Simulated scan of single mutants.
Amino acid sequence: MSKSSYNVLFICTGNSARSIMAEAILNQQGAGRFRAYSAGSHPAGQVHPRAIDLLARNRFKTEGLRSKNWSEFAAADAPHMDFVLTVCDKAAGEICPVWPGQPMSAHWGVEDPASVKGGEEVIQRAFNDAFMVLSRRVALLTVLPIEKLDRLALKKELAGIGQVRA
């Protein structure tokens, strides 16, 4: 798999926090080598304000981020995806659309910070933790020698990245 740029779709059920953060992080850290997108099977309809705030505080671009349905990326005129990465366990268990071109897929489960209950400190820590895990995984993806790996080795590497914690 040798290309100058790779399209990556991060999917989650609600597409309000984790997949949105992963999209923003990869678009900035992937600097031209990757183009990231995100979507959800049952999108919340809005990006979680804490996700936007956390991204902005860490100097990631937030304009244009929106909660959207994954069907947008299964359409004939959608960008061709090279990778589809699920970031929540619920979406990983759902039947996904058929992605044109059979992109490589992997599961990168991250706890949902938007579902955490508790005080301000507990909730903020959950968002920070998810952000750190996603940042670390995205950093590993950006240095992966994709063009030097065969499909099986690449699949194994992607799965391994999904096991990395912050």
Score class of each variant (00 low, 15 high):
H107D: 08
I123M: 11
L144V: 00
V122N: 04
P43E: 10
F73N: 03
K3S: 13
F83W: 07
D112S: 09
L144P: 00
G40T: 08
R165G: 12
T13H: 05
L152D: 10
L134I: 12
T62R: 07
I25G: 05
T142P: 00
T13N: 04
L134C: 00
M104W: 14
K117M: 12
V164P: 00
S19Y: 04
H42M: 15
G160R: 11
V8H: 04
E121M: 13
R165F: 11
R50K: 12
S115K: 13
V116E: 06
F60Y: 15
F10A: 01
W99D: 02
A126N: 00
T62N: 08
N128R: 15
V122M: 11
P79A: 07
A92N: 03
S41Y: 09
M81T: 04
R125N: 13
A91F: 03
E23P: 02
V84G: 03
R59F: 02
V138S: 11
G14T: 01
L154D: 13
Y37W: 14
N7R: 14
F83G: 01
I123N: 06
T86W: 05
E121H: 10
I20N: 01
I11D: 02
H42C: 13
P79M: 07
E157L: 08
P49T: 12
L140F: 13
Y37K: 11
K61V: 10
K117W: 06
I52C: 03
K61A: 14
A51V: 00
H80Y: 08
D53R: 11
D77G: 09
Q29Y: 08
D77W: 08
T62M: 06
P97F: 05
S115F: 05
H48W: 08
Q29E: 14
